[in-house]
Amino acid sequence: MSSSAEVGFGQSGAVVRVYIANMPPMAEYAGLRQVKPLQKGEIDLINSACGNGWRKVFNVYSKLLFALDAKQFGFTRYAGSWQQYRDQYLLQAGSNTALLFSMPELKAGTKDIHIIAGRTHARALLDNGLTAQLNWLNQEFALDKYQRVLVCPYFDYRQLNNEKLTFLAQLIKTLDE
C-alpha cells in the first residue's frame, strides 16, 4: 500500500491528475484507500454499473488528453484515437493519468497537472484546506500557475464541451511557457 493519501484510479504519481467529488458507487471501490490502476475493460464495467454520467467522465478525460499539445504530452503516441486510448490505457498502470477522489497533494517544482472538475468541488476543496491561490479567469475556469492547479467545468459534454475542452488544453500548455 502506498504511503500517499491519494485515493482514486490510475497511476500513483501521475502527471495528469483529475479530481472529482465522488467515486463510482460500486461495492468494489467502497474501501478504496489508495490509487488503484484500472484493468482493461474495467471502465466498461463502471459504465455498465453506474450509467452514462461515468461514461461521460471517461470520454471527456480521454478527449482532453488527445487535445493536449503532443510535444508537451505524448498521449497521442499510444493510440490512434481518444476512444482507443480510453479503452486501452486510460487510468491503467503506466498511463501517467489519475482520477482522484481525494485532496490534491501539491508539490512545488513538479510537472504535475492538477485539474479540479467543477467549481463547486474546487470551493469544497479550498474550504477543506487546499492551499491553491486560484485566479478565476471567468465563471468556469481558474488557474494557479505556480502550483499547476486548474479548475474547469465538470467532465460532462454539456458542461465541458469541445470549445471549452480546447480552452482547457490551451491553459495547460501555458503552464510550461
Score class of each variant (00 low, 15 high):
I113F: 05
Y146R: 09
G10M: 01
E28L: 11
L130Y: 09
Y85V: 13
L130I: 14
Q34F: 09
A49R: 15
H121F: 05
F141S: 11
A98R: 00
Y78T: 13
G10I: 03
N138H: 06
C50P: 00
Y29D: 15
L64R: 10
S4V: 03
T97K: 11
P25K: 12
R33T: 09
L160F: 03
N161D: 11
L32S: 03
E163G: 03
L171G: 11
Y89C: 15
V16L: 15
L90W: 03
Y157I: 00
R123Q: 14
I46S: 12
R148P: 04
V35N: 12
T76V: 02
L126R: 06
Y85R: 14
V16K: 15
V35D: 07
K107E: 11
L91R: 02
K145I: 05
G109V: 00
A14F: 08
D69M: 02
N47S: 09
M1C: 12
V16T: 11
V57R: 14
T166W: 00
A108C: 01
L130R: 13
K40T: 01
K56A: 13
Y19T: 10
M103Y: 02
Q34A: 15
L64W: 00
I43F: 07
I116H: 06
V35E: 01
G53A: 10
G31A: 09
P37R: 04
V149Y: 12
T131G: 10
L65C: 14
V18I: 14
I116N: 03
S3F: 00
S62K: 13
N138G: 10
C152W: 09
P25I: 03
V60R: 14
K36A: 09
A93T: 00
R17M: 08
G80E: 01
N52C: 08
K40R: 14
Y78G: 13
L65G: 10
T110C: 15
F155W: 11
L165D: 08
N22W: 05
F155N: 13
V15I: 14
Q72M: 04
Q39G: 06
W136M: 06
E177W: 01
R123H: 02
R158Y: 01
D127C: 02
A142Y: 00
Q147F: 06
Q83L: 13
R119H: 01
G118R: 13
R17H: 04
N135R: 03
Y29T: 11
N135K: 14
E140Y: 04
A14R: 12
Q11T: 06
V149D: 11
S2E: 07
G31T: 06
Q84G: 08
V16H: 15
Y154G: 03
L165V: 02
D69T: 12
R77N: 12
Y157K: 09
P37Y: 00
A30N: 02
N135S: 07
G74F: 09
K145A: 08
L168D: 09
A98T: 05
G13F: 06
I20P: 05
M1P: 14
A27E: 10
V15M: 13
Y85I: 10
N161A: 07
V60I: 15
L106Y: 14
F73D: 07
Q83W: 04
D87P: 04
L106N: 14
V57T: 14
K164Y: 07
G80D: 05
Q159W: 00
